[in-house]
Design a protein around this nucleic acid. Structure first.
Length: 316
RNA sequence: GGGAAGUUCGUAUAGUGGUCAAUUACGGGAGACUGUAAAUCUCUUGCUUCGGCUUCGGUGGUUCGAAUCCAUCACUUCCCA
């Protein structure tokens, strides 16, 4: 084991659990959240700064606030950033805790995706835009050199697939060699009705804490509202309200529904990960913090004992 | 007190005698996804031992046949008092 991972649907209590466990183990947290990477996107993305102070002591959390809102980011970049931090922490003899809800990012790390840096190719994109989805699908199928399984639900996805294949053909395939990850995965979840209740309460809190102002500040600072809308959930609905395209009540109700749907989709992803062989140790989000931490420590200690004879380097 | 309209599968709607287990939207559920992933996309949604079974406010009628027609009861909304 060289990485502890904490995943789970939104509003389940991952963050504070990760912070407590990190505090207990004397290690750092590495965020796996595609929205918390952006500076200024705090309330809406759930950057609960208070969660990272345990018993008055701060817990270090990486890969938060590393970009300006509106900048492009993706799995490839995440994986690279993750391993930069991961390597440092390992070099210091510690086992980091990756915590977040972005299934794709977590999976890229845990299952060692072999991604290459493929820049956008505007000319190719413009040219491919003239083809139908069917034609693009055929084109991609005839090119398949990668082992991945890019879906072709939309032209956008199919075009990106072709773009990647084209790049690989034109360039020598240089796959970054990331260290092998041997993860111990915990999942925090709640029964659906409780999950929904938590989402409702958290939404009310965020609105009370100035989420609308956060959106206005972002817009005022020059972030394109369309970019914010693309960020989804809080950023989408609150921005729509802020620019006058939705009433306050509509925004609140539709956002609540969208977050519930998102939580459901997250679970779909985690179930899929399990089906593909990732063992997830599920923890009931309703348990008191001490119980959660104790449960995690028991499993960690068990693993350290059983693997100590072959790996003495795994220290917590 | 009088008059008008309405009551459909979680919600909102469509359906005005057979082609209706019943339209559409939302919500719910399941799923896809290795490149913007909080995104994007798909399927499903009365019950079923898959032969059927029970549904369209309640009851009773008309009819070979009713969500659809009639009577009546209940409730809701609106208008005049």
């Amino acid at each position: 084991m060289n990485l502890i991972t904490i995943l789970g649907p939104t509003a389940g209590g991952k963050t504070s659990f990760a912070a407590h466990l990190a505090h207990e183990l004397g290690t750092d947290v590495i965020s796996a959240d595609s929205r918390q990477v952006y500076r200024g996107m705090d309330i809406g993305s759930g950057k609960d700064v208070d969660d990272y102070v345990v018993n008055g002591e701060p817990v270090k959390c990486h890969l938060i606030d590393i970009l300006d809102a509106g900048e492009k980011y993706n799995v490839f970049r995440y994986q690279k950033d993750f391993f930069d931090v991961f390597t440092q922490i390992r070099a210091a003899g510690r086992t980091p805790i990756m915590c977040g809800g972005t299934g794709l990012y977590i999976e890229a790390v845990i299952r060692n995706y072999q991604l290459i840096d493929v820049p956008a190719n505007p000319k190719l994109r413009a040219r491919l835009e003239n083809y139908t989805l069917e034609e693009l699908k055929e084109m991609l199928a005839s090119m398949k050199t990668l082992h991945n399984t890019t879906d072709t639900d939309t032209k956008k996805r199919a075009i990106r697939g072709i773009e990647i294949e084209t790049f690989i053909k034109e360039n020598p395939k240089v796959v970054p060699t990331y260290p092998k990850i041997e993860p111990l995965v915990f999942g925090v979840k709640n029964p659906r009705p409780i999950e929904r209740e938590k989402i409702r309460i958290r939404l009310e809190e965020r609105l009370k804490n100035g989420m609308v102002d956060e959106m206005r500040t972002l817009i005022a600072s020059g972030v394109n509202p369309d970019d914010l809308i693309y960020y989804g959930l809080e950023y989408k609905y609150v921005t729509l309200y802020a620019i006058g395209k939705m009433s306050y009540d509509e925004m609140k109700e539709q956002l609540y529904i969208a977050i519930c749907q998102f939580a459901k989709r997250q679970m779909t992803w985690y179930r899929r990960m399990e089906r593909m062989g990732v063992r997830i140790n599920w923890i009931d989000g309703q348990l008191p913090m001490e119980r959660k931490v104790r449960f995690a420590k028991e499993i960690i200690n068990h693993i350290l004992q059983t693997s100590s004879h072959k790996s003495a380097t795994a220290s917590l």
